[in-house]
């Protein structure tokens, strides 16, 4: 855990001691929050319908894990995020590359991108439910939008940041259009693409929870929303904790190391 929660940094840290110290700095406020929670609930005699005690949340956790419902919600949410993200990246990267090498395409699409990136998120839900119905399609579409625009834009930035001399070098060595894309443009833009995916997923995760409250009957957002109808604050709080922890795990265990690795290995282009 200590390694995974260390904040991202570009330079190589001097070692484990520094990682542990950074991890401690990151975790300490969370620990304080966790410890003060039962204290505050007890001291002010908070009604369980306003905010749950630790015990109730723990019980809700045990219950929802053992009956499999929590796993079903998590699986549904993660599945939508994975599908929406994958689809978005597959479409956005080629489009971003095309924009990066063609000023005309770029000039035409950039204003549209500006407009739609403002909308990318929950604003799409009403029309998405009309198009796709309630459930997987509509929510995946929201995820897609959150990831798509930012990845396409970052790909564009990455491609345009590749020094022209690298493209010239490849061309004079016989690289055709396809080889230019696979050997120069994609590797050169990769650090930006990965950064775009990380940022986009951050938005997508927030959008996902909101969309699930409206447009589905399974998933973490739905879990929160339904619990509200039954005044089950312990389930709501459990859901919030799960949502936060899941994102931290995804970001710190997968996305941040991936971003760091790509920048270290492939991001030399800016310095070359």
């Amino acid at each position: 855990m200590s390694h995974s929660v260390a904040p991202i940094e570009m330079g190589q840290g001097p070692g484990a001691a520094r990682h542990i110290r950074q991890a401690a700095i990151f975790v300490a406020p969370l620990v304080v929050l966790f410890l003060s929670w039962p204290l505050l609930v007890w001291a002010f005699g908070v009604d369980a319908r306003v905010f749950p005690g630790v015990k109730a949340v723990f019980a809700a956790a045990v219950e929802s894990v053992s009956d499999g419902s929590l796993l079903a919600h998590v699986a549904a949410s993660l599945g939508r995020v994975a599908a929406g993200t994958l689809l978005a990246v597959v479409v956005a990267v080629p489009l971003g590359v095309a924009m990066g090498v063609n000023a005309g395409i770029s000039a035409f699409l950039t204003p549209l991108f500006r407009f739609f990136s403002v909308l990318a998120g929950i604003a799409w839900i009403p029309i998405a439910t009309l198009w796709f119905g309630y459930g997987f399609g509509a929510i995946t579409f929201v995820i897609f939008n959150a990831v798509f625009f930012i990845v396409a834009y970052n790909t564009l930035l990455g491609v345009t940041a590749i020094p022209m001399r690298l493209r010239h070098a490849a061309a004079s060595l016989g690289a055709g259009r396809l080889a230019m894309v696979t050997e120069v443009l994609l590797p050169g833009a990769l650090p930006n693409i990965v950064t775009g995916i990380r940022t986009g997923l951050g938005f997508a995760w927030r959008g996902l929870i909101a969309a699930e409250m409206i447009a589905t009957n399974v998933g973490l957002g739905y879990m929160l929303f339904v619990a509200r109808d039954f005044y089950r604050t312990e389930v709501i709080v459990l859901g919030m904790i799960v949502i936060g922890i899941l994102w931290l795990l995804i970001d710190r265990l997968i996305l941040a190391p991936l971003e760091r690795a790509t920048i270290e290995r492939w991001g030399l282009v800016q310095r070359a």
């Binding site: 020094p163 690298l166 061309a171 004079s172 070359a272």
Partner: peptide, 28 residues
């Protein structure tokens, strides 16, 4: 247009940073 009949050596080398030296030399 560019072509492999004219090999170019650049002032700032223009090696592909994500390829090893041998892969750069073998690129053409």
């Amino acid at each position: 247009g560019p072509g492999r009949d004219r090999g170019v050596v650049f002032q700032n080398f223009a090696l592909l940073p994500w390829k090893t030296v041998i892969d750069n030399v073998g690129f053409g």
